[in-house]
Computed example of a mutant assay.
Amino acid sequence: MDKKTKLGQLNRLTVKHLTGMGATLDGGQMGDLLLPRKHMPDSLQEGSQIEVFVYLDSEDQPVATTETPKVMVGQVAYLKVIDVNKTGAFLDWGLPKDLLLPFAEQTNALRPGMHKVIYVYLDKASRRITASARLDKYLKEENTPLQPGQPVDLLFCGRSELGHKAVINGRYLGLLHHSDAYQNIMIGTTKQGFVKSINPDGRVNLALHLPNKAQLSELAERILADLEATGGVSQLTDKSQPDDIKARWKVSKGSYKKAIGALYKQRKIIIHPDRIELVKD
């Protein structure tokens, strides 16, 4: 059975013949596709195969290119707005014909020079490769395969009152709470992170760092040294506000509680409702 050529994807196609304009490729159900001469490698021969990206040209006809776009169908990317007209916004995705982001798929007004995180899909009516900023239409907000502690690739795509929204592994949506963001997070930033926890409703909470035993031990040692240097008392307890703990120690409240809990078990501190206190020898 012949392999189906996919629009908006990389395809490995066979060269049928070479012409002055370029190479004619066997596009399967799409028919013959032109690979323009400027994109042809010198070694290309009839009967050989070549990997190309298939998209629609300015006349909405399928065409092949050896150039790789910044994003393909089924992927997300952070792209620059090149132009805006009555049809929508047009984005730079690395090909001569810019990528359309229709008004109906926008979440806010866009101007040339702005950037936006978008998902690329094939429009069912027009069969055109199209962008959408409405990520929740195409990406799952509820987790199925992810596990707490799992490392993941993140693309930060928005903000909410609770924290920073991110695309996880290009397929899911999750949230990095403000209390777990120990640095400024800009929309469009990519980072490796971790699944911190999963809510009962399936929503994913993220972290940039997961504390291990060595890190917690090092934090406990720093807390102990600070107590010894500042009179043996600190107003930060396991009941303190996360922002106060983060401002002082650059860690989450959970990590801080584990560290002082370890010191308490070692009988090095006493935990009071309003303070922690160094145990005197």
Rank of each mutant, 00 (worst) to 15 (best):
M72K: 13
T24M: 15
T107K: 15
L263A: 04
N212K: 07
W93C: 06
S252L: 05
G158C: 11
Q61D: 02
L34R: 12
G170F: 12
K140E: 00
Y121T: 00
N143L: 14
L122I: 15
R134Q: 11
Q266E: 08
D98A: 13
M40H: 00
L155P: 02
D2S: 14
G27H: 10
Y256I: 07
E221D: 06
T66S: 08
V117F: 05
D32K: 15
G254D: 09
L146D: 00
K196P: 00
K6P: 09
P151I: 14
P102A: 04
D136C: 04
S240H: 11
V63G: 04
N212Q: 08
T237G: 05
I129E: 01
A23Y: 13
A225W: 03
N184Q: 11
N199C: 03
A64W: 12
F90K: 05
K4E: 13
E51H: 09
T24Q: 15
Q106I: 04
V71C: 07
P145E: 06
D136R: 14
M21F: 13
N11H: 07
R203F: 03
P200Q: 03
D98M: 11
M30D: 00
A77T: 05
M114F: 08
S179K: 14
A247S: 11
S240A: 12
P242F: 03
D180P: 05
N205A: 06
T19H: 11
A104F: 05
R111I: 08
E161Y: 12
R12S: 08
M30L: 15
P148Q: 10
Q241F: 14
N85R: 03
N212M: 04
K239V: 01
G174D: 04
D42L: 11
L34G: 07
L101T: 06
T68N: 03
L216G: 00
E141V: 11
L263W: 02
K265N: 01
M114H: 11
L175D: 06
L18A: 04
E228R: 13
E59M: 10
I269Y: 07
M114Y: 06
R267W: 00
G202D: 02
P151F: 14
